[in-house]
Write a protein that binds this DNA or RNA. Structure first.
Lengths: 252, 252
DNA sequence: TGGACAAATCTTGCATACAAGACTGGAAAG
DNA sequence: CTTTCCAGTCTTGTATGCAAGATTTGTCCA
């Protein structure tokens, strides 16, 4: 379904390709990642694919089901709560200790907010999901601490998976306004307020999740059989199957 | 030098054994981790060892030098600063949002502080290093968020490596007092103060590092040739060589 | 028509083999 | 005596082969 290889795939590392696909919401939680198919796609042997999977597994981004296959993680409701909890703590600390913004930081943030506004206007949900996550990574980048950025990148990847699983309706405008408020507080040199706003923002987003929702084993099939909607036809050349991890246990 | 296999090694996963060895300061930064030797030690083939190494590499705990070998990470001075920076941010957020302590939490913390005091009294530096790191993991555990605990565990592992590399003299008592102050603030239900104390504590510890110190390629040799000191002879049966990563580039 | 069984086909798990680069030690040359 | 070079030995990098379990699908029987 989601194509990982928009450009010559040889040069990109496999890890990065998959993480990027998640960060830009081009790949669904539960998507099967076949060792053989990835090996073919990247023109390497299974060994290297496996190594990439091991690394991603250590970052909770993919899961292995023994002798069944590798799958993009499907965070449980509990895990989702923990990820949001961790993000609240990390981002609170982050914003509290944010240095005064330089003009270029500020420009970058405003450019980002502008992008968000455009995406909302064009109702491009995938791009929105991506931008909403990116905002927080941008904040981390301003601090200039790669260790922290890395932590937040992984948490963001997991957050995106959570959104794709549990987000019933996407209050994009509300999120965007949250981001604007945070930037405004930072601009006003009020880090304590920015931190408080970030927590409220994350609360709101978490509130918008439907954590009681069970993963739908038939989701892909449903989507595939659905007659064309607004979005136009999906790209045809897809090397990765859309097989989902839940196949036989259907609702009785 | 450091023995990783105190008990039957088959059952433990390789990752855990190595991380545990680092968290308890039984293994030095720069120690070579030979695939063959680990494979023999754990009675598996190199494949599985390699997979473990890949996972640990993703967590910045080991490094590979192409076709030369795997080594326990030797964080650079810059990385050290970033790790401490990240910890300040995370732990500030953590303590700020700490729930009121339950009696059992409090008991556990006090027990830990008691252990620290004992270790100081017996001047057991290895045990101290281990306990000092553990304190922060304990704090994370109280919040009951495994995602965050995991983040802090990795940061702590890296911190321990940093200590082993750059800590010229270990102000154990000062650290211990820092921990006591934090617990006292938590006990007094003053999370804001606890958070501020944590930052000061981390500042002090970082201050105690000598980040200008260059890694000493002769460290192992020096230790080995040194006549017996207080600590008594090292355990004899060591399967891992003490080879360090710097072998030929000596100071001219 | 419905259900159970079994074979065929897929998947990963793991070990091994071989290639290629890095390091060591010794011999030869200056 | 010092330096250079080369072969031997070590290391990891990578592919591949085979085994074992899971899944699917086709068939047979009630």
């Amino acid at each position: 379904m989601q194509d990982l290889s928009t450009s010559p795939p040889q040069l990109q590392s496999i890890d990065k390709a998959i993480v990027d696909a998640i960060l830009s919401a081009r790949i669904q939680p539960g998507t099967r990642l076949s060792e053989n198919q990835l090996a073919a796609l990247f023109s390497v042997s299974r060994t290297r694919v496996r190594e990439a999977m091991m690394r991603l597994e250590a970052r909770c981004i993919v899961t292995v089901s023994p002798r069944r296959g590798w799958f993009v993680s499907e965070p449980s409701a509990e895990e989702a709560r923990h990820v949001y909890g961790a993000r609240r703590i990390v981002e609170y600390g982050l914003l509290r200790s944010m240095p005064a913004l330089t003009p270029s930081d500020l420009a970058a943030l405003h450019r980002h907010l502008e992008d968000e506004k455009l995406a909302i206007a064009s109702a491009d949900r995938q791009r929105l999901t991506c931008l909403m996550g990116d905002f927080h990574i941008r904040l981390a980048e301003i601090v200039g601490n790669p260790v922290l950025t890395e932590v937040l990148r992984d948490l963001t990847a997991r957050t995106i998976l959570i959104s794709l699983m549990y987000q019933s309706d996407f209050h994009a405008l509300q999120s965007h306004e949250g981001h604007c408020a945070i930037v405004a507080a930072l601009e006003a040199n009020a880090p304590e307020q920015a931190a408080a706003l970030a927590i409220r923002h994350l609360d709101e987003v978490e509130e918008g999740l439907d954590l009681t929702r069970q993963p739908d084993p038939l989701a892909d099939l449903r989507r595939s059989l659905q007659p064309e909607t607004e979005a136009g036809p999906r790209p045809a050349a897809d090397m990765l199957k859309t097989t989902h991890r839940h196949t036989q246990k259907e609702n009785p």
